[in-house]
Design a protein around this nucleic acid. Sequence first.
DNA 1: AAAAAGTATAAAAAATTTTTTATATATGTT
DNA 2: AACATATATAAAAAATTTTTTATACTTTTT
Lengths: 125, 125
Amino acid sequence: MENLIKIFHALSDETRLKIIKLLSKGELCVCEIVSALNMIQPKVSFHLGVLKEAGLLKMKRKGKWIIYELDDSELFNRFLIISVVEKISDKDVKEELERLKNFKKVKPLDTIRDRRQEEINEGKI
Amino acid sequence: MENLIKIFHALSDETRLKIIKLLSKGELCVCEIVSALNMIQPKVSFHLGVLKEAGLLKMKRKGKWIIYELDDSELFNRFLIISVVEKISDKDVKEELERLKNFKKVKPLDTIRDRRQEEINEGKI
DNA sequence: AAAAAGTATAAAAAATTTTTTATATATGTT
DNA sequence: AACATATATAAAAAATTTTTTATACTTTTT
């Protein structure tokens, strides 16, 4: 019951729903989410933490980045994630997607990232 | 999106989940819910209001009582209600069910209620 | 080895939600 | 008509959550 409340609570916030919608298009590092949402980093980290605690996200380290992605391994959470993604239109995150697109262009992680280290670190944390 | 948040928020509270679980066994008037939860009436009314606003409950007047029941006419809400009811065990509302049972025995609405008026008022409010 | 970049976390401040207390309203009872 | 019962609602108080600000920790870059 406590867990159920935690999940619903995690989903009862606009910022967090937007994060889920953004992550439905693929994994993102914190700085990309920060940029997309146009919010300060500790605020985004806070919301990522809430979603993580609810079991809706998982994270991994890649070099100096920490990458978040949706965790739909639990059937119920999976259903909720699918519902959220379906119910939130791209229009609702139009600006976020634009900022994200631009950020990825201006600052593509791939070009900066040391690919060898990446493989080594993959799966850690 | 706002609506979605409202629904999840309504579900992110122990008292409200208990109310849903109780109502899954059948409609109840406010005083019965108050008794089952062992809470003061304005508090219960507040939570009923939150659930109502989210579209998870409907109400009708019967004489001097106001009866609440689950509203599963919306498919998504229906799924959520079913999930909640399934995920919350009877154990989680053991005491509530006992108090409710006793209240219904001590104070059965049926014996007090004017059945003719009841029919007339049905559906109003 | 310093400096920089990315992220988490703690503490304080701000905002929101919940709870309580008091009161109003509607219906039924005497 | 006065009183009692059932419920809603407004206002104040209390509690919780979110946001901000400051700082610490990792990893990478120079």
